[in-house]
Design a protein around this nucleic acid. Structure first.
Length: 153
DNA sequence: GCCAACGTTGGC
DNA sequence: GCCAACGTTGGC
């Protein structure tokens, strides 16, 4: 059934409502090696918790699904682009991205402070103050969060 | 806006 | 290969 992940996005930049409108999107701009490596492990159909960071409050707001395997983040070699990195080239891409598609908006968002208090989520990466913008989530953690948000899994 | 956590860079 | 300096993330 595939693995589960949590992906952070600032709602001012790209929100779950934006994803719902677009249907799917490329996850460009990840410039952290650990997050990049995790995206390269993703498979089609993997479940994603969509998390609003730098929000008030921050938390999980919806569900998404991986719909394209990792491919080079071409914005990294577009000079002048916000995500330009001179060390990344078409011949030797340094940064990668996946595409994700909209699945659902949770009836109730699950705020970070709720995640921190929920039994069973003690080891969830996001409750451990990790800055990582792409994180692995266990099946159990995924189910708990979806249930907290009133969604169907 | 502050600042702790933590990842990256670069001199040595 | 160490580690100090620096930059960024992101909760509060």
């Amino acid at each position: 059934m595939g693995r589960c992940w949590l992906m952070k996005s600032e709602p001012d930049v790209y929100s779950i409502a934006d994803l719902e409108r677009d249907g799917s999107t490329c996850w460009e701009g990840v410039r952290n090696y650990q997050a990049r490596n995790l995206m390269r492990e993703m498979e089609i159909g993997d479940r994603v918790l969509f998390y609003h960071s730098n929000a008030k409050p921050p938390g999980v707001v919806g569900l998404a699904r991986v719909c394209r395997l990792a491919y080079p983040d071409h914005f990294s070699w577009e000079e002048g682009h916000k995500y330009f990195d001179p060390k990344s080239t078409p011949d030797s891409p340094r940064w990668w991205m996946v595409d994700v598609e909209y699945v659902d908006t949770l009836p109730r968002m699950v705020a970070l402070n709720e995640l921190k208090e929920e039994p069973g989520l003690e080891n969830m990466v996001v409750t451990r103050r990790s800055r990582l913008s792409v994180q692995p989530v266990t099946d159990d953690e995924y189910e708990i969060v979806v249930r907290m948000g009133g969604g169907r899994s």
